[in-house]
Simulated scan of single mutants.
Amino acid sequence: MPRYALKIEYHGAPFAGWQRQADQPSVQGAVEAALARLEPGEHRIAAAGRTDAGVHATGQVASFDLAKGWDPFRLSEALNYHLKPQPVAVVAAARVADDWHARFTAVERRYVFRLLMRRAPATHDAGLVWQVKQPLDVAPMREAAAHLIGKHDFTTFRSSICQAASPVKTLDEITIEEVAGFSGPELRFFLRARSFLHNQVRSIVGTLERVGAGAWAPGDVKTAREAADRASCGPVCPPQGLYLAGVGYPEDPFG
């Protein structure tokens, strides 16, 4: 059976997350239902990352097998037709090796978090950003973020229901950029690692926001990390500003 990879983007608001749910809409369920319109029967797809409810993606990757061979472009067009009107789109498709797997072949995940700083309620960006009403000081936030780069025990920044075998992860990048966003000044956080713990990105961003607001000193983040205690974490920020922006592989299946 030929195997395919898809690059998928979606707006996370209508879904209970990526993973298939018995009684709630999911992105996985939407894509599998579209596949069933092309080849009747049950389909099971694997994703590079299981995003939570409300989290978006611009570069999710999924893999699956089909009974017959499809031209990748025709496959993406057919899936997009059957995915309408849901806010899910296949932006690329590729034929991959039989042992290629969206999750296990991946060597890197990249997340972006958007934080809007303005008092007036967001309209055009509602549901797409985390909004705070006051400006944040980015310099101490960058200083604090430096304490999280590298290989560490991230128990403090790990959800209590995280199923990862170990809290030790290597965070390769945290970059914070100031952007003149469509709705006002934004901070955009770019995080890169081979893999992440459940709620790790939202825990980190929520904690760094406290530094930018002046409630925490940059060194407090190092102290919190070294405590290896979930109770030492700052607030976990809401999901709507978070995007799975890309997944890295030894060779890009989409060229």
Rank of each mutant, 00 (worst) to 15 (best):
S159W: 00
W70S: 06
W130F: 13
V201F: 01
L38Y: 06
Y249G: 11
A224Y: 07
V96D: 00
G150A: 10
I149T: 11
V61G: 13
H152E: 08
I204N: 08
M1G: 12
V236G: 04
R188G: 01
A89P: 01
G12K: 11
E32N: 01
D125A: 12
G214N: 08
Q200F: 11
H82W: 13
L66V: 11
I176E: 03
D137E: 15
A22I: 02
F113E: 09
R50L: 01
P218C: 10
G127W: 03
A139H: 10
E42Q: 14
V107T: 14
D125L: 15
G214Y: 06
Y4I: 03
E77V: 06
A106Y: 00
E173C: 12
A48D: 08
P167L: 07
N199C: 04
Q163P: 10
S203H: 08
A47I: 00
I45P: 01
R192F: 12
R37C: 13
W130Q: 14
A97D: 11
A16H: 13
K68P: 00
G241A: 01
A53N: 03
A180N: 14
L128V: 09
P135L: 05
E251Q: 15
T170I: 12
F113R: 06
R110M: 08
A227L: 12
A48L: 11
V168F: 02
A13Q: 10
A106L: 00
D23Y: 13
G49A: 15
E209I: 14
H101G: 02
A144K: 07
W216R: 07
M141N: 07
R194A: 15
H56V: 06
V91Q: 04
D137Y: 08
W100S: 00
T155Y: 08
L115D: 05
L83W: 03
D99P: 07
E143M: 09
R110E: 14
R142C: 09
P72W: 04
F190L: 13
A213F: 02
P121Y: 10
E173Y: 02
I174M: 04
A217S: 13
R192N: 13
K169E: 12
T123A: 11
L66K: 11
I204A: 09
A78M: 06
A146M: 13
V211M: 10
T207Q: 10
W70F: 14
D252E: 14
R103K: 06
V138A: 10
R158G: 09
F154M: 03
R202S: 01
L128E: 14
G212V: 14
R114Q: 12
F254N: 08
A224M: 04
E226W: 08
A146P: 09
M1I: 07
G234V: 04
T123P: 00
L208V: 05
L128G: 10
V138N: 01
